[in-house]
């Protein structure tokens, strides 16, 4: 396969909805359990970091610490939901459950299957954001009215992290090796994307690195601005960055999976 072949636009049909629907049905079977993490996690983080650690921090850029980290918690949850859905969960469905094999014996193609998985990953992100927003708003840390804009944005960001997860699913030799992208990419993003302290506290080269290569940086920027109700033109850069990265990685992830699975 030549390099350009990885960026050919795959032919995806509306049947990918059936795969999304399959995953949604499985999710609904354990809906109570699935809703618990996005409901409880922000509460625990806010108590420990926002109100605990935050007692010792005056404020950041003029906002109390709890208020500073609250939007980042949503961004992190968006990242985790889609990334884990399209890495570990997709890998299990592909390799252990042979779900993809069963589906491609029907009129669906492998492109449809992967597209459905990616859409579902993004949906998981959106669900998490939707559950978290009222919880955080209850503490008075975000503006509920503006925050509703975060929901569609969580879907877009979810697509990006779903595509990243799927790329690793396609290239990983086995399920254990998925720990590498988590250790080397996801965890650094969790810590160094302006989540728990402003990016400006880091050395300038690291700041540039974060802006250029860490998608979570842009997610945090947008979600923080929206939840504070401050919309500035610099957000356009973040959104365009996410859009372009999403398009490239979505195409790449489908082609990589096709290469892995068509033999």
């Amino acid at each position: 396969m030549k390099l350009v072949d990885y960026f050919v636009i795959p032919s995806v049909s509306s049947r990918s909805y059936k795969v999304w629907q399959r995953n949604k049905d499985v999710f609904m079977k354990d809906i109570k359990l699935n809703f618990l993490p996005p409901f409880l996690e922000p509460i625990m983080y806010l108590i420990a970091l926002g109100f605990g650690l935050g007692k010792f921090i005056e404020n950041i850029d003029g906002v109390p610490y709890a208020k500073f980290i609250a939007p980042a918690l949503i961004a992190v949850s968006v990242m985790y939901a889609a990334f884990f859905e399209c890495s570990y969960s997709s890998y299990v469905r592909m390799y252990y459950q042979k779900t993809f094999d069963a589906i491609i014996a029907t009129p669906l193609t492998i492109e449809d299957v992967i597209a459905g998985e990616l859409l579902w990953g993004a949906t998981r992100s959106m669900i998490n954001a939707t559950v978290m927003i009222p919880v955080i708003a209850f503490f008075g840390l975000i503006d509920l009215k503006y925050s509703l804009l975060i929901i569609p944005f969580a879907f877009l960001g979810g697509l990006l992290f779903a595509a990243i997860g799927m790329c690793f699913t396609a290239i990983t030799p086995n399920i254990m090796s998925l720990s590498y992208p988590i250790l080397l990419f996801i965890t650094p993003m969790f810590l160094f994307s302006g989540t728990f302290f402003p990016l400006s506290a880091l050395p300038v080269p690291v700041q540039y690195f974060a802006i250029a290569f860490l998608p979570l940086t842009h997610m945090v920027n947008v979600i923080r601005a929206v939840s504070f109700g401050i919309l500035s033109s610099s957000l356009l850069f973040d959104i365009v960055w996410i859009l372009i990265a999403s398009i490239i990685l979505l195409i790449l992830s489908i082609n990589l999976m096709k290469k892995k699975l068509v033999v």
């Binding site: 049947r15 049905d25 459950q97 042979k98 779900t99 094999d101 069963a102 014996a105 009129p107 669906l108």
Partner: peptide, 29 residues
């Protein structure tokens, strides 16, 4: 594929569903 049925070598039933749901979910494809 629309007119074909396949019994693969390895049972690849959908472990997330019951017997009935397996058939129902498959019918949607």
């Amino acid at each position: 594929k629309y007119f074909m049925g396949v019994v693969p070598q390895e049972n690849n039933l959908d472990g997330d569903f019951t017997v009935y749901e397996n058939l129902l979910v498959y019918s949607r494809y």
